[in-house]
Design a protein around this nucleic acid. Structure first.
Lengths: 114, 114
DNA sequence: TATTTGTGAAACCAAAAGGTTGCATTATGA
DNA sequence: TCATAATGCAACCTTTTGGTTTCACAAATA
């Protein structure tokens, strides 16, 4: 079974769970009560999140508190950021190209600079 | 069928495909030849990627060129970034706490500032 | 024209995902 | 001690995922 952060955040319910506990840990029932699926379904999502390190579950009496480990999201961030230069430079090129087109249409070859 | 960017990048093969065509568009066969699964399997991944907007496929003769639309990753980036403040401030708190502990252990209460 | 190349898509399959109900276990509180 | 609350987990189900083999078809080429 693949268990990485990318798969962890792939499901919208799991992203909602993360958002819910981002600022304050909640016990399993509290998390589940915010959804209209069963507690067991939410428990499974929590288990997946904990398996990929995005959540840590700690027992306290008869309750288990779920704490978000948001810093694990840096893996996702790093992966995306490696491509940012590529896509922004492409958008710049497109922008340049459009500006050049515009200049040519106006037939006075002035080149705008940003 | 859910088709969003998060699900698009959930599969490691699809992330590899994106990486492969990030700088240069490739036709379907060229993409597939880099993997040891069948062309059809890769074709399905490409279809999923195009359904969630991460890839655009354009016909050129009998070939279809696959072009990465990396700017779609900004959706992922935005989602992650909303949590960065939360996790970095927590790490700062932890750091402060550890430094305070250290000071107390050295029994001379000096408080380092960054 | 006949053949090869590049591709799309159908039919099928096993495993994983996401859900349910039901039951066992442990901690709390009356 | 007994009832209840919070939870983990097994058993089961349906749909999706990720893969396969096979076939059809259009474009390029010998």
């Amino acid at each position: 079974m693949r268990r990485d952060v990318f798969q962890g955040i792939a499901d919208p319910t799991r992203r909602e769970i993360l958002n819910m506990i981002a600022h304050k840990s909640l016990n399993v029932n509290s998390v589940a009560s915010n959804f209209d699926v069963s507690r067991t379904a939410i428990y499974k999502h929590l288990k997946i999140l904990s398996e990929c390190g995005l959540v840590v579950i700690q027992q306290q009496g008869r309750e288990r508190f779920c704490e978000a480990r948001l810093e694990r999201l840096s893996e996702v961030s790093d992966w995306v950021e490696q491509y940012r230069k590529v896509w922004t430079s492409r958008l710049d090129n497109l922008e340049d190209y459009l500006k050049e087109l515009q200049s040519k249409n106006k037939k006075h070859g002035r080149k705008k600079t940003r």
